[in-house]
């Protein structure tokens, strides 16, 4: 159970940071995030098998591909929404998600496949400590989540770009008056979010299977972000662990149907008590 919680919460961390970064910077709830996660697995697998690259090359390629797609999404769809209501921007992300899902179904036929097996990726079990056994790729998932969190924390705290993004998230107008390129900052948020989502999607598909239902997995990342606080990076990890643990315990000892709903029931409960999430900022809640 501990191993399962570790592995699942690591994926939730990588998904939730994408939601948090975009929301924190631009106040947009990105409903296409899950579909980016899903389609990255298909794209990565298609690329690796077409060009015959060693399998683990899919990971840096997916990072780069995610960054480029985040930039394109911002430049083509989100930048023109500047000055319009947040609600309109959110609608755009919903439409984008549906479009990605539809194209993935048409292009890849909704087939379920096992990239890890087809690419002969070694995924052997290792006992980390007694009672905790993780496979190779699960270890990579956990390590990746740790690296992503540490890197992003340091980035936002110490790097010039990170400081600009924080400034823009607090007061975009003031930040613009001070010479910060707001579009560049917002684009940066989308780049980071998409890059991490695509990387996580590729890694997840190596570990489990590739199927259209991966979008639903990613939606639980939104639940984690809401529980932790949509503007809180430090809320992501505790929220991910809590949601993963409760979900798996309910699935194992309670009802599997409930397990699917658990992340969202937790969201409802937390938001009833603290609408800004466990670690979020009270003033940051916008009405959509």
């Amino acid at each position: 159970m501990i191993a399962a919680i570790l592995s699942l919460s690591a994926i939730y961390v990588m998904l939730a940071v994408g939601f948090v970064i975009v929301y924190r910077t631009s106040h947009v709830l990105n409903f296409a995030h899950g579909d980016v996660f899903m389609v990255s697995g298909y794209l990565g697998f298609a690329l690796i098998t077409t060009i015959s690259l060693p399998p683990y090359w899919a990971l840096p390629v997916s990072l780069a591909g995610g960054a480029i797609s985040g930039l394109l999404i911002y430049a083509v769809l989100m930048a023109p929404m500047a000055g319009h209501s947040i609600f309109a921007a959110v609608l755009v992300t919903i439409a984008l998600g549906m479009a990605i899902r539809g194209l993935a179904l048409v292009g890849f036929k909704g087939q379920v496949t096992y990239p890890g097996r087809i690419l002969s990726i070694e995924d052997a079990p290792y006992t980390i400590v007694p009672g905790v056994t993780l496979t190779t790729i699960e270890i990579l998932i956990v390590l990746s989540a740790i690296v992503v969190m540490v890197a992003l924390t340091l980035f936002f705290r110490y790097s010039p770009w990170g400081i600009r993004m924080r400034a823009a998230s607090q007061d975009p107008r003031l930040a613009a008056y001070r010479g910060i390129n707001i579009h560049a900052v917002f684009a940066g948020a989308w780049v980071i979010a998409s890059a991490v989502a695509m990387y996580a999607g590729t890694l997840y598909s190596f570990s489990k299977q590739l199927s259209p239902s991966l979008s639903d997995v990613a939606l639980r990342g939104l639940a984690v972000a809401l529980v932790g606080g949509m503007d809180s990076m430090k809320g992501v990890v505790p929220a991910a662990i809590a949601v993963a643990a409760i979900e798996l315990l309910v699935q194992r000892y309670g009802s599997p149907q409930m397990a699917e709903a658990i992340p969202f029931l937790i969201v409802l409960l937390v938001l009833l008590i603290r609408p800004w999430g466990l670690f979020g900022t009270k003033e940051m809640i916008d009405r959509i």
């Binding site: 159970m1 399962a4 699942l8 489990k208 239902s213 639903d216 699917e260």
Partner: peptide, 8 residues
């Protein structure tokens, strides 16, 4: 139904 992870 929507799950694809049987690891647990």
């Amino acid at each position: 139904v929507a799950s694809s992870d049987a690891t647990p």
